[in-house]
Nucleic acid binder design. Structure first.
Lengths: 143, 143
DNA sequence: GTATTTAGTAAAATTATAATTACTAAATAT
DNA sequence: ATATTTAGTAATTATAATTTTACTAAATAC
């Protein structure tokens, strides 16, 4: 029982792989690492300090110094002192930083909407219901 | 209607993000690009020539020459002439190459199985059904 | 049959990422 | 109060990724 469930989960990942691999093809002025950092901030919807980003992305903090300061110069993030820890600096996305990320999702959104026409009305309803269920339960699992 | 559906799809991606970002943390002897290439071959379950990998991963073919030949030396892939095109060379995963990929999925599998205990019996059944439905319909959409 | 395109290779130069070491200042442990 | 740990910065070195140019041989267009 549990085994088949996990297999369905695994099968889900390649199904989303196509969308994912196209995510960072928007040849912006951002480097790979810069993209990773603002994606991380966007996904998690809050400000992080360098140490948190470092462990979250499994990157040495020494690397982040340059990456993040470049992002700051280009206006994608802002630094502000962490009120709870005077050593730490919180990195937050600016509206410009959020916008870049949202653009990427918009592309996936459009592609999905187009492919949706290959399903009939009933299948579309089923898909919406099933997706909603999956999202609710996956969220519960991680909480 | 269609709008909410696409939003559920978008919401699914961050839900799988955790799994995805851990995928390539297995500090093997493989470089980033090498990982990409064998992941691509594994995901698509067949041999490709360099041009196909090049366009599929949006990487210059010149880069692939070195990446793939390194993979070949390390025994992760084999090259064989394409019977349909005497210019082309087909790149296929070896058992060793497949094994490395499967190991990555096994980790995700285990993590998922552990978190599954946070759902009760009924929720687990619901999740399995919903995941199955999503996979079937997403596959249909891409075909 | 000739010209053009395409798949793959190769080498050089540029840029990005990774790893190492060392330092400051604030936080925490004892 | 002192020692140790932790967050961030900085500079250096090594490695990897990207770009550019150029070449061969097979495939395709006309």
């Amino acid at each position: 029982m549990k085994k088949e469930l996990a297999q369905e989960y695994i099968a889900l990942i390649p199904n989303l792989f196509g969308s994912f691999s196209e995510l960072n093809k928007n040849a912006t002025e951002l480097s790979h690492m810069q993209n990773h950092v603002i994606e991380y901030l966007f996904m998690n919807k809050r400000a992080f300090n360098l140490k948190e980003i470092s462990t979250g992305l499994d990157i040495a903090k020494q690397q982040l110094t340059n990456v993040v300061s470049a992002l700051e110069v280009q206006g994608y993030v802002v630094k502000k002192p962490d009120p709870k820890d005077k050593r730490a600096v919180l990195i937050a996305l600016t509206p410009k930083g959020k916008e870049v990320q949202e653009k990427k999702w918009a592309e996936i959104y459009n592609r999905f909407s187009q492919n949706l026409t290959k399903l009939n009305e009933e299948e579309q309803r089923d898909l919406q219901f099933a997706l909603h269920k999956v999202n609710v339960l996956l969220t519960k699992m991680e909480g």
